[in-house]
């Protein structure tokens, strides 16, 4: 199967501090990988590198066949990013936010209108569509943020601590969307501190510590969540 993400000898240095050290990673299409690790391990930096927000010091990242350094715009079109920041404009309404980001991703007007209605319905914000985002609760903002990240139907989803600020209802909405047939084939890479939720959703577990992957395994090879905690717990310190 073709790789959705292919990382070779990736390194990132901030000043004199190496954050990522010669990482290699292949993610196949449709795979759902979750990265665990202690604070400062380089998890968010890795997502930022894949999403082209920052440039690597060394090595290469190929996203859906596009090198992120040579063809960043083509790579970005394939990526949807959900962060703990909502990435939403408070002075615009929910619909205006989605319309703006849809336009920036080049979605045609007629199709954009349909997608906005569809995603607002999916995240349960149809009745709030014309209200300013600044009036939304944290949970509502995160729901809208889910719609924003998925609006252009990305083939690769980067999820950086997506559960931050999500109420139980919104968490369920989020998980249902990820499991829906529409996004079943997208490749998902999630960074999380929530071991139980992350483990439940993924089919591959990665542990990043001090800039290196210290564990990379498939869930089916682990004896459940308890087995995972027993085997991998010490690696996350």
């Amino acid at each position: 199967m073709e790789n959705a993400v292919s990382i070779r000898k990736l390194s990132k240095v901030f000043g004199k501090t190496p954050v990522l050290k010669a990482l290699d990673l292949d993610l196949k299409k449709g795979e759902f990988a979750v990265i665990f690790g202690p604070n400062g391990a380089g998890k968010t930096t890795l997502l930022k590198l894949i999403s082209t927000l920052i440039e690597p010091t060394g090595g290469s990242i190929i996203v859906s066949g596009f090198n992120t350094t040579e063809e960043p715009e083509k790579a970005r079109k394939e990526i949807g990013m959900l962060s703990h920041d909502s990435y939403l404009y408070g002075d615009l309404t929910a619909k205006e936010n989605l319309r703006f980001f849809g336009q920036m991703y080049g979605i045609k007007d007629k199709e954009l209108g349909e997608r906005i209605s569809h995603f607002l319905e999916d995240v349960g914000l149809v009745t709030k569509a014309d209200e300013r985002v600044s009036t939304f609760s944290r949970g509502m903002k995160q729901r809208l943020s889910i719609a924003r990240a998925l609006l252009h139907r990305p083939s690769i989803l980067l999820l950086d601590e997506p559960y931050t600020g999500l109420d139980p209802g919104a968490s369920l909405v989020f998980e249902n969307i990820l499991k829906s047939p529409e996004f079943q084939e997208s490749t998902k890479l999630m960074v999380s501190h929530d071991l139980e939720r992350g483990f439940a959703l993924c089919n591959r577990v990665l542990i990043l510590n001090k800039g290196r992957f210290v564990y990379d395994g498939f869930k089916e090879n682990l004896s459940g969540f308890e087995g995972f905690k027993e085997e991998c717990g010490p690696m996350m310190v």
Binding site: T52, L53, R76, M81, D85, S86, L88
Partner: peptide
């Protein structure tokens, strides 16, 4: 307005 809620990052993520 771009720094609120990380919107500048969102703009930079656009193709």
């Amino acid at each position: 307005m771009e720094t609120e809620n990380g919107c500048l990052e969102a703009l930079m993520l656009c193709p």
